[in-house]
Design a protein around this nucleic acid. Structure first.
Length: 201
DNA sequence: TCACTGATCGTCT
DNA sequence: GACGATCAGTGAG
């Protein structure tokens, strides 16, 4: 798919993690796999802040969360519930420990490659949810810490194409601490957004 | 369409 | 030893 994919420059990323989470809606995730580009538009994100009890960075830096503490625009990948991975973009200032969780994308290119990595199931669920997104794009711990602003990398971010619809805000999903903070952002009405229907209106 | 539950295992307490 | 930024399968409305 010869889409004009332009990598994001690190300097264009909003320094504020919340602003970054909102700004990333409509941008693209690009994953070169088997000689082709796989990915699509980001439609759902969540912000995790440095002083946020729900954030992995809350108790300070350790071996697992160190990627959250670097410059913004790097990948932070971790394993959850023993069998899934979640993909974040490091945010904020260096040593701050903030990140933006990419919860869902709208597949645009490499559909077959994604489906091949997620056998069965509803095609509309291919990349709906952080665990499914990582499975479809073959994102694992090997990509932890990678620079997402380099177009020749194994995983990177690109400028958006289609216009962005209205952006909704809600509490984050699946957490128990600071569960009411309105730090989830999504493109309203987009069927690729995760959660029940009421969570994407 | 939603609510509930089991699966599964690395990391931190 | 307990828990978690989840998912797929099942069953009810």
């Amino acid at each position: 798919m010869p889409l004009p994919l332009t990598p994001l420059s690190r300097g264009s990323l909003p320094p504020d993690p919340i602003a970054l989470a909102r700004w990333l809606i409509g941008k693209r995730v690009v994953r070169p796999l088997d000689g082709a580009h796989v990915g699509g538009r980001i439609v759902e994100t969540e912000a995790y802040l440095d002083d946020d009890p729900a954030s992995h960075s809350f108790r300070g830096q350790n071996l697992r969360n160190r990627s959250m503490f670097g410059v913004r625009g790097n990948a932070y990948v971790y394993r959850i519930y023993g069998m899934w991975f979640c993909f974040n973009v490091s945010a904020g200032a260096p040593r701050e420990g903030a990140a933006v969780l990419i919860r869902a994308i709208e597949p645009e290119f490499g559909l077959d490659a994604m489906a091949a990595r997620r056998r069965g199931g509803d095609p509309r669920d291919l990349t709906r949810g952080p665990g499914r997104l990582c499975a479809a794009l073959a994102i694992d711990l090997q990509l932890d810490g990678i620079d997402l602003c380099r177009a020749n990398g194994a995983l990177w971010l690109a400028e958006g194409g289609a216009p962005i619809g209205p952006i909704g805000t809600s509490p984050r999903i699946g957490i128990t601490k600071a569960a009411d903070a309105p730090l989830r952002f999504y493109e309203r009405g987009n069927p690729r957004v995760s959660g029940p229907k009421s969570a994407r209106t």
